[in-house]
Amino acid sequence: MELIEGIPADELADEDLLRELESLGRTRVQTLRHGSDDALHMHTERSRELEREYLRRFPQREIDPQRTREGARAEG
C-alpha cells in the first residue's frame, strides 16, 4: 500500500473517522475539478482507506430504504 497522508484509518477514533469521511465528501468536487492528478489520486486513495475502515467497523450499518433501488422506485 502506498503512503497516504494523515493518521492511518485504523488508528482513528470513531468520531474522527466520521469527521474525516465527511471532510473528504465536502472536498471531492473541488479536488476533482481543480486539484492536480496527484491530489486527486491521494484523495481517492484516502477515501478508499477510510471507507474500508468504516465498513470494517460498522458491517451492520443502518441502510436507509430510500437509498436502495427498490425504495427509490417506490417513492417515484
Results as ranks from 00 to 15, higher is better:
Arg33His: 11
Leu12Lys: 01
Leu55Met: 09
Glu49Thr: 05
Glu20Leu: 00
Arg69Cys: 09
Arg73Trp: 06
Thr27Asn: 04
Leu40His: 04
Glu2Asp: 11
His34Lys: 09
Leu12Gln: 10
Leu21Val: 07
Arg69Asp: 05
Arg57Thr: 13
Leu17Val: 08
Ile4Phe: 07
Glu49Asp: 09
Leu3Ser: 09
Leu17Gln: 01
Gly71Lys: 13
Pro65Leu: 02
Arg26Glu: 03
Gln30Tyr: 13
Gly6Ile: 09
Gln60Glu: 12
Glu70Asn: 06
Arg52Gly: 04
Val29Gln: 12
Arg69Val: 10
Arg19Glu: 14
Asp64Phe: 11
Glu51Ser: 13
Leu24Gln: 08
Gly71Tyr: 12
Glu53Gln: 15
Leu32Cys: 01
Ile4Gly: 03
Thr27Ser: 10
His41Asn: 10
Glu20Thr: 01
Arg48Thr: 14
Gln66Val: 11
Leu32Met: 09
Ala39Lys: 00
Glu5Pro: 08
Thr31Trp: 00
Leu24Pro: 00
Gln66Ser: 08
Glu15Ser: 14
Leu40Cys: 04
Arg33Gln: 11
His43Trp: 14
Arg56Ile: 15
Glu51Cys: 06
Glu5Lys: 15
Arg26Asp: 00
Arg26Asn: 03
Asp10Gln: 14
Ser36Glu: 05
Asp16Thr: 05
Glu70Val: 05
Glu53Phe: 15
Leu12Val: 02
Glu20Pro: 04
Glu75Val: 09
His34Glu: 15
Leu3Pro: 01
His41Asp: 14
His41Trp: 05
Arg57Phe: 11
Arg28Asn: 04
Leu50Tyr: 12
Gly6Leu: 06
Arg57Glu: 07
Glu70Leu: 07
His41Lys: 08
His34Arg: 12
Tyr54Trp: 12
Phe58Pro: 00
Thr27Val: 02
Asp64Trp: 13
Leu32Arg: 00
Arg52Gln: 14
Tyr54Lys: 07
Arg57Met: 09
Asp38Phe: 12
Leu21Phe: 14
Leu32His: 01
Thr44Arg: 09
Pro8Ile: 05
Arg61Leu: 15
Ser47Gln: 08
Glu75Asn: 06
Gly76Arg: 14
Thr31Gln: 02
Leu17Cys: 10
Thr27His: 05
Leu24His: 05
Glu5Thr: 15
Asp14Ser: 07
Glu20His: 08
Pro65Met: 01
Gln60Asn: 15
Gly35Leu: 01
Ala39Gln: 14
Arg57Leu: 11
